[in-house]
Nucleic acid binder design. Structure first.
Length: 457
RNA sequence: GGCCUGGUGGCAGAGUGGUCAUGCAGCGGCCUGCAAAGCCGCGUACGCCGGUUCGAUUCCGACCUAGGCCUCCA
């Protein structure tokens, strides 16, 4: 089944064909590790995790890189503010990031390059840019010369004239052109820095992705992904640097941009302050419901966070896990789980996860009604491609058990209720049910007895 | 101001030039001691105004409106 992906560069959906089918390359701009990430930051990683899963089904070797930016002025500010070493901050939040991503069911990338481990590659790239006239040194800085790259602005659909006219930034005096951006900047003694031909300093923001992408994936990669808010200037600058440093070679063949998560009618953003940290949300809601929520909208559209949305996601998963719990004793066929064609087709159509989820719902209905090994396997196989439904169904319904739930006590109450019902003392039986409800436990009487679930996250 | 996306039933959210999205919630029925779950059924959605067409939610134009980028940002 061919994969079609929307390419931000051409503004069209195009049939995907890797440069080398034996080695498909993909790069996602990762976090700057100075704080916990918010749920909006997790959208790209979740969406492109699904893409990676899809690509791995189609190609034998996919190399997926997601970087860690561990040198940045915000990190410096955080370290200074807390009176600790920079490394203390970056190590702590790198670990936190990995934990958050894992909790959301995101498979680790194949490569997780760190900016500080690629300083020599960065310096080499900057030297190349100076050498071929695309960059210049000025007052300890090195800047990319936008006027020396004709295609600048192609990705974001703007031309240099407009940018200069609309520039709201103070233009540094050492810039030849207001749109020129920093490749290297000088560090004062208390700031992290590395020796370079231009003095002790540190890299600008954009160059690291270009250097790491080339170092691990090659000069031309298949897919470069990130949030739409990175399209300009970050990705535009990456294209300029990489293309000019590599003698005009295409940098990334597909550019993919995920839409923003909104909250309260506006983009969730640290500067606006309307953020919900993944680290905190994981304490409040089932992680899988967070993942489902992020996949419920098409990745290029904005998606709104709300309590209602998370409640819906939980209810949906309740329904699907109910099917799997009923089929707990049904043995799966031997071998790998099948991947349902219609669900895969939805994903192959520019990662249409809402359509894929609709197909998953159809598979859940089929499994509930037929109850066969095949239909169960199809449901699980479809879920696997989306990174859903992989936990034990019983665990889903009894989640959060650690805090307040005393299973033995619940079982004792259920036994008492069973006896009351046998004696047709329904008043007592209903009182016990109410007591359980007060504990946030719902019960269902079935042919094989009574079972219970936690009502809400 | 420039560039770019959207506006679909109570909510979320795909999609299509002319029969069904799907999920959540709601309503009626069956089942149940009563519930829950399940099953059956129900609700004449496509921002507004023009145009093209035998026919438009779907194509074209204007308008209204929401959001994103232009500055750190996923």
């Amino acid at each position: 089944m061919p994969i079609s992906l929307y390419n931000s560069l051409t503004r069209r959906t195009e049939a995907f064909a890797p440069l080398d089918p034996a080695r498909v390359t993909m790069y996602l701009c990762g976090p700057t590790v100075y704080n916990y990430v918010h749920i909006g930051n997790a959208r790209g990683p979740v969406v492109f995790d699904v893409l990676a899963r899809l690509l791995r089904r189609h190609y034998p070797h996919v190399v997926y890189a997601r970087n860690i930016t561990d040198v940045d002025d915000k990190i410096n500010a955080a370290a200074l503010g807390q009176g600790v070493a920079i490394g203390t901050i970056t190590e702590r939040f790198t670990a936190a990031y990995r934990e958050d991503m894992a909790a959301l069911g995101i498979a680790p990338p194949d490569i997780e390059p760190h900016a500080t481990a690629h300083i020599s590659e960065i310096i080499t790239m900057i030297e190349a840019l100076i050498g071929n006239g695309h960059a210049y040194a000025a007052e300890g800085h090195v800047l990319f010369d936008v006027s020396a790259y004709a295609d600048y602005g192609k990705l974001s659909g703007r031309d240099t004239e407009d940018m200069i006219a609309g520039a709201r930034v103070e233009v540094a005096p050492y810039k030849k052109n207001p749109a020129d951006f920093v490749l290297w900047k000088p560090s004062t003694p208390e700031l992290p820095g590395w020796d370079s031909p231009w003095g002790r300093g540190r890299p600008g923001w954009h160059i690291e992705c270009s250097a790491m992408s080339a170092a691990h994936l090659g000069e031309t990669i298949d897919i470069h992904a990130g949030g739409v808010d990175l399209q300009f200037p970050h990705h535009e600058n990456e294209i300029a640097q990489s293309t000019c440093a590599h003698g005009g070679k295409v940098f990334a063949r597909w550019w993919m941009h995920n839409g923003m998560l909104t909250f309260g009618g506006a983009k969730m953003s640290k500067s606006v302050g309307n953020v919900l940290l993944v680290h905190e949300l994981l304490k409040l809601h089932p992680p899988e419901a967070l993942r489902l929520l992020l996949l419920r909208g098409h990745y290029r559209q904005p998606l709104d966070w709300s309590e209602g949305a998370i409640a819906q996601a939980i209810s949906t998963l309740d329904g699907w896990y109910r099917v799997l719990r009923d089929l707990a004793d049904v043995e799966l066929p031997a071998g790998a789980l099948p991947v349902p064609a219609r669900l895969e087709a939805a994903l192959c159509d520019d990662l249409n996860t809402p359509q894929a989820l609709a197909e998953l719902a159809v598979l859940a209905d089929a499994a509930r009604q037929a109850g066969t090994a095949e239909t169960k396997a199809a449901l699980l196989g479809g879920g696997a491609l989306l990174g859903l439904l992989q936990q034990d169904a019983e665990a889903w319904f009894k989640r959060g058990g650690a805090q307040a739930i005393d299973a033995a006590h619940i079982d004792a109450l259920l036994e008492e209720r069973r006896n009351a019902r046998a004696a047709r003392d329904f008043k007592r039986a209903d009182a016990i049910r109410d007591e359980l409800a007060a504990m946030n436990i719902v019960i269902e009487d079935g042919a094989q007895g009574t079972r219970w679930s936690v009502l809400k996250s």
